[in-house]
């Protein structure tokens, strides 16, 4: 189980990496953390002609606060995000999600940008980006463009990033002062990709849900916003009736993929259960009572 032959270039600047992307197009793969790419290479599921190693591009690393925005370089390792005081203070949803990202050795190497750019439907970071309304900054040799998370995830491993673009930065709006967030997922074993998962982010006033965003992942081909569920939720007190209404509405939002981990029916059921639990927790975190 050895990787096929390929060329390897270590990019010495973002411009260099972009130049190589322009030159090689689809024959090239960006090697960031490599925690998903390397298995596919070892299994010969992917046979690129050239790997562009961006790991030495320090300009793509780091976490900083820019006003109300947390800026995370695409090459920032999961472990750095997990341990960041800025992230825990301003993006508690991400801090809550991060321990679910695989295992320690993977988090030490894997990057937040790599996870978002790959867009595995069961991955945590794409869902967090969508839930928090992050902006994904991509760059090609002509310059940068910003893509709202809502427009970034197109489908199974498909994103709005063009072949010649590099994801360079993720800009998360800081969690608003009155907001709460909840991350939950179900996987068979700790660190596995999720079978069902939810990010809830928004405002609860007393027992009323004011402005909550619900993002579901793992059951669909990409993280999705539960528009109907949200409509049934916002403006209502959190109660058994609301829960039932949200559950019913969720059926219009989700069309789960059946796979080895379970049927569509089970995944829909689990997403409903998680919705209820996430809102119980959100209300409780907002200081409300159930």
């Amino acid at each position: 189980m050895k990787a096929p032959k390929f060329s390897y270039v270590r990019a010495d600047s973002v411009e260099h990496a972009l130049e190589l992307l322009d030159k090689h197009g689809d024959d090239a793969r960006i090697l960031a953390g490599g925690q998903s790419l390397m298995p596919t290479l070892n299994m010969r599921l992917s046979q690129p002609e050239i790997l562009i190693d961006i790991n030495r591009l320090n300009e793509l690393k780091g976490i900083s606060l820019d006003g109300d925005t947390v800026v995370i370089g695409a090459l920032t390792r999961h472990v750095e995000v997990l341990n960041s005081d800025i992230v825990s203070a301003h993006l508690p949803l991400v801090t809550e999600a991060m321990p679910y990202v695989a295992h320690v050795a993977i988090r030490n190497r894997g990057t937040i940008g790599g996870s978002i750019a790959l867009s595995d439907p069961a991955a945590e970071m794409p869902a967090c980006a969508l839930a928090l309304g992050a902006t994904l900054v991509v760059q090609n040799s002509g310059g940068k463009r910003e893509i709202p998370a809502e427009q970034f995830f197109h489908g199974l491993y498909e994103t709005a990033r063009a072949e010649n673009e590099l994801l360079v930065e993720i800009r998360f709006p800081s969690q608003k002062k009155d907001n709460v967030s909840v991350f939950m997922e179900l996987s068979r074993r700790h660190g596995d990709y999720a079978i069902a998962g939810i990010c809830a982010y928004g405002k609860v006033t007393g027992e009323t849900i004011d402005d909550m965003r619900l993002v579901y992942f793992a059951s669909e081909d990409r993280p999705v916003i539960g528009e109907h569920a949200i409509a049934a939720l916002n403006g209502h007190a959190w109660s058994e009736e609301t829960k039932d209404a949200v559950s019913a509405a969720l059926e219009n939002d989700l069309d789960p993929m059946a796979n080895l981990n379970g049927s569509a029916a089970m995944k829909l059921h689990l997403q409903k259960v998680l919705t209820g639990r996430a809102m119980d927790t959100a209300v409780s975190r907002a200081g409300g009572t159930l």
Binding site: L31, Q35, M38, P39, N42, M43, L51, I106, N108, R109
Partner: peptide, 29 residues
């Protein structure tokens, strides 16, 4: 396993434990 699941290849690179099968030797230059 050579696909990053089993952990038997865990080594330390620049202070952090990583999967040795998911890192090219060239990357550890």
């Amino acid at each position: 396993c050579e696909h990053g699941v089993c952990g038997a290849c865990s080594v330390r690179v620049d202070g952090d434990v990583v999967r040795g099968c998911l890192l090219l030797a060239a990357q550890a230059d």
